[in-house]
Amino acid sequence: MGLLVLVTVLGNALVILAFVVDRRLRTQGDFFFLNLAVADLLVGGFCIPLYIPYVLTGEWRLGRGLCKLWLVVDYLVCTASVFNIVLISFDRFISVTKAVSYRAQKGKTRNAILKMVTVWIAAFLLYGPAILSWEYIAQKSILPEGECHAEFFYNWYFLMIASTIEFFTPFITVTYFNLSIYLNIRKRVSLRNENLSPGQEDSEMSFQGKKGNTPLTRDKRVAKSLAIIVSVFGLCWAPYTLLMIIRAACHGHCVLHALYETSFWLLWVNSAINPILYPLCHMSFRKAFTKLLCPRKVKIHPHIFM
């Protein structure tokens, strides 16, 4: 658990530091990666550390007030993380399918900041009011002494609606974006091949090899990176979402606690994996990370940042 905290905090802090240090990362699309890193950093820096003594002792000993705060922040940052992935996917989708208009808006950060703020507001409104006011509206609390979970923990109807907004709709949306990008690239490759004779095609492929930066090549990288991010998101979130709904429907009697607990931790693992995906899937972050972690390499090979 301590290792997960360390990896999550350091990884996402590195993403934020790279954004601060490298001005080239301050584009509209990269602002959304920053927003995701902030949400994931809060997961590792606040949510997991407060949960560790709870899961080890089996009892919440930090008081009801801190329990409420922990629940609000945990649901907020996890939901914000999902909504940020949707925002990143939409940004990648527009960059490929409407490249001209996207480049015209690339340097304008006001719209990006507005979208970032909207993500946090929407994430809070999904669970925050319910966490804070459920027991007052119901005029009773179902939370036993020494436990800390949301009052709607076993309310199947609420969880089904919230899960649809938090997971099912985002997952279908990002899958659609990914599929659209793939079809767009496939269509462009097909049109390019139709317009080239066999000799020209070989020449074009040779030229493409000499030049890992044409629009089509960049878009293929975007498609691959988005596919990886979406796949990891689905693998980390699907088990918890499904088990949460089933658990609520049968009031916890049909789902093993250990299985549910494992799926719960899998959500937080996603926050540790995300910063690892950035350098793998994003050339700009890879260069910035190299600059921060391997300054000697930059001095010896300055051309990699040209």
Rank of each mutant, 00 (worst) to 15 (best):
L3I: 12
T8M: 03
T8C: 09
V9F: 07
I16H: 02
I16W: 01
A18H: 04
D22Q: 10
R24Y: 03
T27W: 05
G29C: 09
V38P: 06
D40N: 10
L41Q: 00
F46S: 05
P49T: 11
I52E: 08
P53Q: 12
V55C: 07
R61F: 04
L62D: 14
G63C: 14
L66Y: 07
C67A: 13
A80D: 01
F83L: 11
S89G: 11
R92C: 02
T97R: 09
T97E: 04
K98I: 01
A99S: 06
V100R: 15
V100K: 15
V100P: 05
R103L: 08
G107S: 01
R110Q: 15
V117E: 14
F124M: 08
F124S: 11
G128I: 07
S133Q: 14
Y136W: 13
I137K: 03
K140T: 10
K140W: 10
G146T: 09
G146S: 05
E147K: 08
C148L: 04
E151I: 00
N155R: 01
Y157D: 01
M160F: 07
I161M: 07
A162H: 10
T164K: 01
E166I: 02
E166W: 04
F177W: 08
N178D: 11
Y182E: 12
L183T: 10
N184S: 07
N184L: 00
N184I: 00
N193W: 13
S197C: 11
E201Y: 12
D202I: 12
D202A: 14
E204Y: 12
F207H: 14
F207K: 14
Q208A: 15
Q208K: 14
Q208G: 15
G209H: 14
T214A: 10
T214M: 11
P215R: 05
T217S: 07
K220T: 11
A223Y: 08
S225L: 08
I228V: 15
I228R: 09
L242H: 08
R247I: 01
A248L: 03
A248F: 02
C250W: 01
G252M: 02
G252F: 04
V255Y: 10
A258G: 05
S263N: 00
W265G: 10
W265R: 00
L267N: 15
S271L: 05
I273R: 05
N274W: 12
I276N: 02
Y278I: 14
P279Q: 01
P279D: 02
H282N: 15
S284L: 04
L292I: 12
L293I: 13
C294H: 06
P295K: 01
R296S: 15
I300W: 13
P302C: 00
F305L: 06
